[in-house]
Amino acid sequence: MKQSIFLFFVFLILCLTPCVSQQSITETREAAKDELLTSIHKFNRAFQNGDVAILESMITSNYVHSNGSSKSFGKEAWVGYLKKRSSKINNGNLEVLQYEMDELELVLHGTSAIVTGRVKVSQKSEGEIVTNSYRVTHLWVRESGKWKRAGFHDGKIK
């Protein structure tokens, strides 16, 4: 009798383990997505405001940036661009009126993620307001427990 009860509990545990594990995996993936979304929003606010220190801390050392108007370039060149842009924001020569990312889709691949979306930008420079929209693709990776952007590409929406 004791052996039957013992075998029943072993069987029950074996049957339930995959369910618990699957639930844990799903919860872990959802938590990772939530953390990534928080990081993306922080990154976008920092870009809108020209906060170079935050942006630099949120990209990988081997960061790759590309867009429709230039060849790809690395972290050093992108941070250089950010510093010039930040200076224009700080001295009033550039005002970012809107920087909004929507149509966001995230696909997790272990400790990395592909993020796609649309960015709508409206900015005022030298008295002229320019508004554009871009399709974007980001590569984000987990480094030291934090999400960092490792790659970026955009294309202007006509």
Rank of each mutant, 00 (worst) to 15 (best):
T111A: 13
A77E: 05
N49D: 00
E126K: 15
G74T: 05
V115M: 00
K33D: 04
V52E: 09
G117T: 03
G68V: 01
L108T: 01
N62I: 09
S70F: 13
S61W: 10
S125Y: 03
E105P: 06
R142N: 14
R118E: 06
E76M: 06
S61I: 03
A77M: 01
I54P: 09
H41S: 11
S87D: 11
V141A: 04
L139H: 07
S39N: 03
Q98P: 11
K146L: 11
T60Q: 01
W140I: 06
E128D: 13
K148I: 05
N67D: 14
K42N: 12
S61G: 15
A31S: 14
I59F: 09
K71L: 15
G117H: 05
S61H: 12
A150N: 13
H65C: 12
E105A: 14
N49C: 13
R85V: 07
G151F: 09
S86C: 10
H41E: 10
V121L: 10
A32W: 14
N91T: 12
A113V: 07
K75Q: 07
E95C: 13
R135A: 03
L106C: 15
I54Y: 02
G92R: 08
E35C: 07
L55R: 06
A150I: 04
R135M: 14
N49F: 02
R149Q: 03
K75C: 05
I59S: 05
N93H: 12
R142A: 11
R142V: 15
T60L: 11
D154R: 02
D154W: 08
F73N: 02
F43Q: 06
S61M: 01
L106T: 14
S144Y: 04
T38W: 08
G145R: 06
K42R: 12
I114S: 06
K124V: 08
D51A: 05
E95W: 10
V119K: 04
T131H: 07
N67S: 14
D51P: 02
S112M: 02
G151Y: 08
Q48E: 10
K83T: 05
I129V: 14
T137R: 07
H153V: 15
N67T: 04
K146W: 10
A46E: 08
T111W: 09
E143P: 08
N132R: 07
K75N: 03
I40C: 06
K75W: 11
L106P: 05
W140E: 04
R149W: 07
E35N: 15
H109V: 13
I89S: 09
F47L: 00
E143R: 04
H153M: 15
I89H: 06
K120R: 09
E105Q: 14
V96D: 07
S69P: 12
Y134R: 05
N132S: 12
N44Y: 03
A46Q: 03
V52I: 12
K33Y: 13
E103F: 15
E76Q: 12
D102Q: 05
I54N: 05
V141F: 07
I59D: 04
Y63M: 04
F47V: 09
L108P: 01
N93E: 10
